[in-house]
Amino acid sequence: MRIGLITPEPGHPLLAATAALLAPDHLVEALDPRTARGVPGPPADVYLLKSRTPQALDLARHLEERGAPVVNTAAATSRCQDRTVMAELALRAGLPFAPTRTVGPLCAWVDSGGSPPFPMVVKSRFSRRGDLVARVDDAAGLRELAARWPGEPVVVQDFAPNSGWDHKLWAIGDQVFAALRRSELSPGGPGPARPPARAGVPAGWADLVRATGAAFALDVYGVDIIDAGGGRPLIVDVNAFPGIRGQEGAPGALAALALRRAGAGTSGSVAAP
């Protein structure tokens, strides 16, 4: 079979290891969305969309229109980039997602007197590398943040007290992987991921991850969860096709998923409403 990788970084550890598992029996081709202008000739049997740029999404839509399975679909990937859409979809599905308010450009909102109870979390509405995610404890901190990010469209959330650790849960199909990472809202900022404690992932959280994937029509995805007290999960972010670095078994799971989707001849998941 032919497996296409839509990515500017085919050497990414997860993709490279997956390609190595597939290569003995299958042809793996990388498409750089920065330079690819469609695909001449028949499309591959399946494509793995490991990029979220507008060019990558356009290329994925083009391939889907030609009948090629894409994991994840362009539509599902887009839903994870808009935090307003993300929150609305999650809450509509009954998932324990942090209540989220969309307030528009940060400086204009602050100038208009907008300020929910402190502490709060301010995030870029549109998720991307290097976006804004910050805890704000008082009005002075909010004004300082607005001065640095004046025109940034943002969403705000009440800060939920927690242990300071994010549970990073990743799924490839039905298989769930886990790690802990210091929250980027903690004083020292995020640190390297480490395996969860000996007790492992709290009971029911893996099923919550799978329910999130079903709600967002995702096949390869990450769900960031914090313990909001007493083991109560609170979802704070959903990512399409994250890196899933250093997780034993992840490349094999991705290779198997790619072959299943290629064999089925369909993108698999039904698009979320």
Rank of each mutant, 00 (worst) to 15 (best):
D45R: 11
D45I: 09
L48M: 09
L49K: 02
S51L: 05
R52P: 03
T53A: 13
P54C: 11
A56S: 07
A56L: 03
L57K: 06
L57Q: 09
L57P: 10
L57S: 08
L59M: 07
A60S: 10
R61S: 10
R61P: 04
R61L: 12
R61M: 06
R61I: 01
E64L: 00
E64D: 00
E65K: 11
R66G: 13
A68S: 10
A68F: 07
A68W: 06
T73L: 01
T73Y: 01
A74N: 02
T77M: 13
C80R: 02
D82Q: 08
R83A: 02
R83Y: 02
M86N: 01
A87S: 14
E88Q: 15
E88H: 13
A90G: 08
A90P: 08
L91A: 14
R92P: 06
R92H: 13
A93L: 07
L95G: 12
L95D: 12
L95R: 08
P96L: 06
A98N: 11
R101C: 03
R101Y: 05
T102W: 09
V103T: 10
P105A: 06
C107L: 14
C107G: 13
A108L: 10
W109Q: 14
W109T: 12
D111N: 12
D111A: 15
S115R: 13
P117T: 09
P117L: 07
P119F: 03
P119L: 03
V121C: 07
K123C: 03
S124R: 02
L132E: 09
L132T: 13
V133L: 15
V133N: 10
A134R: 15
A139F: 05
A140Q: 14
G141V: 06
G141P: 10
L142K: 06
L142N: 03
E144V: 11
R148Y: 02
R148H: 11
P150L: 09
G151I: 00
G151T: 12
G151A: 15
P153A: 03
P153L: 01
V155M: 05
V156D: 10
Q157N: 13
Q157K: 08
D158S: 14
F159S: 06
F159G: 06
A160M: 00
S163A: 14
G164Q: 07
D166E: 08
D166C: 07
D166P: 08
W170L: 13
W170R: 08
I172N: 09
I172A: 11
G173K: 03
D174K: 13
D174N: 14
